[in-house]
């Protein structure tokens, strides 16, 4: 089995995502008026790009992500991956959730195995699982159960599972949100390494402005506009510089202040 053969079967190319006029309302009962959560979202994510979705809680960031993955369906507009519309639970995507969602009766390795593309032969699957555990620094914990490992390790298993099939689009729903601050920083570095090793398209939801600026090529700020229902894209910020980025960079500091302003949080930032 040659290396090139392996890369062609396992790593599908990064795919572009396109959202056109996407909206979502809930509650279509006869008595109540539907509540609009999202409206008029237009966004093009190029292949291999990392995009952060940021916004106040309840603004529909997670809903948007779930729509790209095909776990939820827009009530308006359309979403395509690589110019083809989305299937329910679209298998070109892989999702990592805020909670690791590991099967407690399976070992770390067997949990990663769950994410492999169907029809992959056993030996190659095992090789891929070993490779991914190595990538997320968990080779030593391959035979451990979820309850025996820390939250950060569990989240790394979840990440490895999402990468297992070599997804065209990797979707991350506040993947590091429940972790402590230090673990979160190392997970961000890990994600940068992962993207360098397997440069897929990544869309991730976060409420951490710094996380968005360290990881993303572009940061999409979602929020509501005065007198209009639901949230939509308020601003898209392109983040300069290639990864890994300096967390103390002054230019990032300016963008951070801008984003916090956009979120309605005073940044107490003095312009130099």
């Amino acid at each position: 089995m040659s290396l090139s053969q392996r890369t062609t079967t396992l790593e599908s190319p990064a795919l572009p995502v396109s959202l056109r006029g996407v909206g979502r309302s809930f509650g279509s009962g006869r008595k109540e008026l539907p509540t609009t959560v999202l409206r008029d979202v237009d966004l093009d994510v190029t292949a291999g790009e990392i995009v952060a979705l940021i916004g106040p809680s309840g603004c529909g960031k997670s809903t948007l992500l779930r729509q790209i993955s095909g776990l939820d369906t827009p009530t308006a507009g359309s979403i395509t991956i690589d110019d083809r519309s989305i299937a329910p639970a679209d298998q070109r995507c892989a999702m990592a959730f805020q909670e690791p969602r590991l099967l407690p009766w399976r070992t770390a390795a067997r949990n990663v195995q769950l994410g492999l593309a169907r029809g992959l032969d056993r030996a190659r699957g095992a090789e891929r699982v070993a490779e991914l555990l190595e990538l997320v620094h968990l080779s030593h914990a391959r035979d451990q159960r979820p309850r025996e490992i820390s939250g950060g390790m569990a989240q790394r298993v979840s990440l490895a599972r999402a990468l297992a099939r070599g997804p065209g689009v990797l979707l991350l729903d506040e993947p590091f949100g429940a972790l402590d601050a230090l673990t979160r920083l190392s997970m961000q570095d890990l994600l940068v390494d992962i993207h360098a090793a397997e440069p897929t398209t990544i869309v991730f939801v976060t409420h951490d402005v710094d996380e968005a600026l360290i990881l993303a090529d572009r940061v999409v700020l979602l929020g509501s506009e005065p007198d209009l229902p639901g949230a939509t894209i308020r601003r898209v910020i392109s983040v300069p510089g290639s990864r890994p980025r300096d967390r103390a960079d002054a230019e990032l500091g300016e963008l951070r202040a801008e984003l916090l302003d956009g979120l309605g949080v005073p940044s107490h930032h003095s312009h130099h």
Binding site: L71, A89, Q91, M95, F97, E99, R101, L103, R161
Partner: peptide, 11 residues
């Protein structure tokens, strides 16, 4: 339901 949804998400 989280695990079931995860399963569905992975096909």
């Amino acid at each position: 339901p989280h695990l079931v949804e995860m399963g569905r998400a992975y096909g």
